[in-house]
């Protein structure tokens, strides 16, 4: 597998703010790669560095093996789907999609034919004559996708492309993006703050916090084997047990992650006091106090209700307690 994008010790500072700090990252060709993190964690800056809208303060960026650090955006073999879609309001949909081909000098008939094909690919055949303002949010999103893909980029960058869509449409677009990526075989780099989106779509995920990568791995790695308390807490919801408690339980002094769905109520086991519970539809989340710390347990929603103040017994499999870095 070739390396599509490589960050080599890249930092991007805005004055005192270190948006990206010493980033090393390799994204493979044909990968669906997610940059996941809360706002301000540096994931969008990383994407903008690949696109060329930002230049690294220090370090080097390679795209398919060639140094792209000093290459302007218009000479990079990458295209971007913007968060606000950035469709040109003065051009109709077909001219928007054909824009990249037009500035590349492709003839009118040929580029409009390519635009039609690209629009067909995103199920928007026949919308070419409309203005962006006449489209719904989901349709604009598809136009932005077609406009980027028509240039046959080597890497497609997506900046929170589903953020503005409602839930149903978002789930549908997740499926379609995944299918599209598989059929085209293009490297997708996808920025999101939605961990569910990252887990369900990506081949690999990089979790960002404070300008640094906390962990890179498959969705399964990130979820089941978080390396830091931040990852455990940010990806899904988890109980992060402090080193003292873990020392008591296992004899090893390190923080540990314990997923709420891995905890069972039993007749015997560790004692915990019920603090409260909340019904979420498919499940009920039971809030407990365990050795002086809050602990969440996820139960089927038909489980018997527990009154606050009552004592329950809990247990989990040995592999459910996942030790992390950041001990002592």
């Amino acid at each position: 597998m070739d390396i599509a994008v490589k960050f080599d010790g890249v930092s991007r500072h805005f004055g005192e703010v270190r948006a990206i700090d010493g980033l090393d990252l390799e994204i493979g060709e044909g990968e669906f790669f997610a940059l996941l993190g809360p706002s301000g964690s540096g994931k969008t800056t990383s994407l903008r560095l690949i696109a060329g809208f930002e230049r690294p303060t220090t370090g080097r960026i390679e795209i398919f093996g060639s140094d792209a650090t000093d290459v302007p955006p218009y000479r990079r073999p990458v295209n971007t789907v913007f968060q606000d879609y950035a469709l040109f309001p003065h051009l109709n949909v077909a001219d928007n999609v054909a824009y990249g081909l037009r500035v590349a000098g492709v003839g009118k008939a040929e580029r409009l034919k390519a635009a039609d094909e690209a629009l067909a690919m995103v199920a928007l055949s026949g919308y070419g004559a409309r203005r962006p303002a006449e489209l719904s949010g989901g349709q604009r999103q598809r136009v932005a996708l077609a406009r980027a893909l028509v240039n046959r980029p080597k890497v497609l960058l997506l900046d929170e492309p589903l953020g503005a869509l409602d839930l149903k449409l978002r789930e549908q677009m997740q499926e379609e993006l995944k299918t599209l990526q598989r059929s085209l075989g293009i490297t997708f780099v996808f920025v999101t703050h939605d961990q569910g989106e990252a887990l369900s779509m990506a081949d690999r995920v990089a979790v960002f916090s404070d300008g640094r990568i906390q962990q890179i791995g498959t969705p399964e790695d990130i979820y089941h084997r978080p390396e830091t308390p931040f990852v455990a807490d940010f990806v899904g919801s988890s109980n992060v047990l402090p080193p003292d408690v873990v020392m008591d339980l296992t004899g090893i002094r390190a923080p540990a992650s314990l997923r709420p769905e891995r905890i069972r109520l039993t007749r015997e086991g560790h004692e915990a006091e019920v603090v409260g519970s909340s019904f979420t539809g498919a499940t009920t989340r039971l809030k407990l106090r365990f050795r002086g710390m809050p602990l969440t347990v996820q139960l089927p929603s038909d489980a018997a209700p527990r009154a606050p103040g009552s004592i329950v017994h809990i247990a989990w499999d040995d592999d459910a307690l996942h030790l992390m870095e950041g001990g002592a």
């Binding site: 913007f82 824009y99 500035v103 240039n151």
Partner: peptide
């Protein structure tokens, strides 16, 4: 973002100004 999009789609600054 419109100006960035134009550059992203391959237009040099002169073409972005014009288009």
């Amino acid at each position: 973002s419109l100006i960035e999009a134009s550059g992203d789609l391959g237009a040099d600054p002169r073409a972005t100004l014009r288009n």
